[in-house]
């Protein structure tokens, strides 16, 4: 859900714009650490991937369907900084070329979906990964939790912004209940799909999954000989 023009007042829009500029600036520096001089082509292609998966419709029930938001997924697949960059670029392109999300709300959208959404997902992922045993089979289930948490947290951040600069008189607790309730449902869908996608990538190319690198590093080389197999 992209915030359109006029949803939050001008001051809040400018403030979130400043947050977005700072966040994307940090992400640009961070992504260079994750990708080095591969940043431009890799982040570009991953952004294209995020954009395309948002076009993949998942049927829910009764003819309705939903699609992936992809913040947590991108963070786990390519690392948090690159993910912030990719989702930001997707949002900029959507606002400029597809009129999805207002141009004055671009800062708000980037702050919410690219910064809060991605970082919430990533922090949850890392926190759980730190306490669980380092097993490849656990990466996808942890991704499920991370993706699930990231959606209501983003909704919560939106309600917070709305409390500061909302333009319509809605009781905040009504909005909070409605947003949290609705986004918990969306979060379940997001969680299931993220888990399935991460699981399918891990099954084929675990080395590509950024969130699995620590697990792979701790794995020891195991030499299986013909004798060993027979024994």
């Amino acid at each position: 859900m992209h915030v359109p023009d006029g949803f939050l007042d001008a001051t809040t829009s400018l403030a979130t714009g400043a947050v977005a500029v700072a966040g994307v600036g940090l992400a640009l520096r961070g992504a260079r650490k994750e990708l080095d001089d591969r940043t431009a082509p890799m982040a570009g292609l991953v952004a294209t991937f995020v954009f395309s998966t948002q076009m993949l419709n998942f049927p829910v029930a009764g003819g309705t369907s939903g699609h992936l938001l992809g913040g947590a997924l991108a963070a786990i697949l390519v690392g948090p900084w690159t993910a912030v960059l990719c989702v930001s670029v997707v949002l900029i392109v959507q606002a400029l070329l597809f009129a999805d999300g207002g141009i004055t709300a671009l800062g708000t959208n980037i702050s919410l979906m690219a910064i809060v959404g991605v970082l919430a997902g990533w922090l949850v992922f890392r926190a759980i990964q730190a306490v669980l045993p380092k097993k490849l089979a656990l990466v996808a289930p942890v991704a499920v939790v991370a993706a699930f948490v990231s959606v209501p947290v983003t909704a919560l951040a939106f309600v917070g912004l709305y409390g500061v600069g909302g333009t319509a008189p809605i009781a905040l607790d009504t909005l909070l209940t409605a947003m949290l309730g609705w986004h918990t449902l969306i979060g379940i869908g997001e969680a299931v799909i993220t888990g399935l996608v991460v699981g399918s990538v891990i099954a084929v190319r675990p080395d590509l999954v950024y969130g699995a690198r620590r697990v792979l590093k701790s794995r020891e080389l195991e030499i299986r000989t013909a004798e060993g197999a027979a024994a």
């Binding site: 991937f49 998966t53 697949l77 399935l196 990538v201 099954a203």
Partner: peptide, 10 residues
Amino acid sequence: LARSAGALFI
């Protein structure tokens, strides 16, 4: 569908 998305990522 998720496996398709995974393949698309790779």
